[in-house]
Design a protein around this nucleic acid. Structure first.
Lengths: 204, 204
DNA sequence: AGATATATGTACTTATCGGTAAATAACCCT
DNA sequence: AGGGTTATTTACCGATAAGTACATATATCT
């Protein structure tokens, strides 16, 4: 008997693919929000029954959190990759243009599930709201750290308030999520991105 | 007998004040969103029973729409008053500073109910979501018209794209609603407002 | 005082919510 | 072939959702 939990192929095999089911769940949560999504919505979209959902993902809340993890780790995600760009300005540029492209993409719900998944919500959703707030605040913190690095790299003026700069950028990105929900297209978001960069300090 | 619907004091008088009850309803919808708010939440906050609510306000959806009307017409509202300022820059300035003050005010829920009342929502809330989108888009249109006026007034450069400028400003304002939900304070929002104005075209 | 009209509180309806018990089906290992 | 293990299906649970029927209370009008 092994010390770790057995992962060998014992028992009846799962009849659905967990990753694609999770993708489907993400899309529903994205479009309807946590409170607006019922288990029937989920099981219908995922093509499975409730006991399968509970066995595979725990419960509604855990499924939501796993869907958010998937959202942030997907290949089309733009936030973390943008942090890798060589200069602060390019980081901002790629982030804003990535958001303009992604948030208005009609291949999935508009906006950003981290913003709109549980913004105002019932008490039952309070913990997932908290989780989303943490994600947003952590993203802002990561961006600040990146800008701090840029300051020592010399591609931001030494008197730059990196906290304010990160917050400004995140504010626009989060606003773009609302704009996408309003029906704004990629080109319109790109124009906002361009204006946003007007306020960005150039290399000192 | 009068031609208009009788408004005389006939029948048992209402035992509660409709305006203060509507204020209470607004606060609940603001904090919990349309989907996240139950009738029990509403009746408890308003201090009335369900039949009184239905008799006075119609149903949940109509109550929500009336609460939104109240929200936009309240004295502490900042959007429409800002449009009256003499120059485009002052319009933007007052709007941004008003938002910074109002959205983080701890005397009521944080953010903006027009943004967060029904962003992602169930199909049951689709019509109120649509109503909120319309409000946001109309606000953007009003701001554009104001900036068009500013262009003829000469306090915006003649080559200004007023549509983009209005969309940029609304994007930041809507992003500030998310920031307020994240827990940002007025001072932090004011810093964002200041940065936003860096991108604003000065008098041509 | 009595008729009329409106508001209120209690109790109810139907539908759906998130979540689960229990029987059965499908796989691996010996 | 048979035992062990896990997934699936069906049917269900108590709680709560939005909304309402009905009897009663409180006002005005004649």
């Amino acid at each position: 008997m092994s010390a770790v939990t057995s992962t060998v192929n014992v028992g009846r095999p799962r009849a659905f693919d967990m990753d694609t089911a999770l993708e489907k769940a993400l899309e529903v949560f994205w479009r309807k929000g946590y409170d607006g999504t019922s288990l029937s919505d989920l099981t219908e979209a995922m093509g499975i029954n409730k006991p399968s959902l509970y066995a595979a993902f725990g419960n509604k809340e855990q499924l939501f959190l796993k869907a958010i993890e998937l959202y942030e780790s997907r290949p089309c995600s733009f936030f973390l990759p943008a942090l890798e760009k060589p200069t602060a300005y390019q980081v901002a540029e790629h982030m804003l243009h990535g958001a303009a492209m992604n948030m208005a993409d009609s291949n999935h719900p508009q906006g950003c599930v981290v913003v709109q998944g549980a913004l105002s919500c019932s008490e039952a959703a309070a913990s997932v709201k908290e989780a989303l707030i943490n994600r947003r605040v952590e993203g802002e913190q990561k961006l600040k750290v990146r800008f701090d690095q840029a300051k020592t790299d010399g591609d931001l003026p030494p008197d730059t308030d990196t906290g304010v700069l990160a917050r400004y950028l995140l504010t626009v990105l989060q606003g773009m999520a609302i704009q996408a929900n309003n029906g704004a297209c990629s080109e319109q978001l790109r124009q906002v991105a361009h204006m946003t960069l007007q306020a960005f300090p150039r290399a000192g």
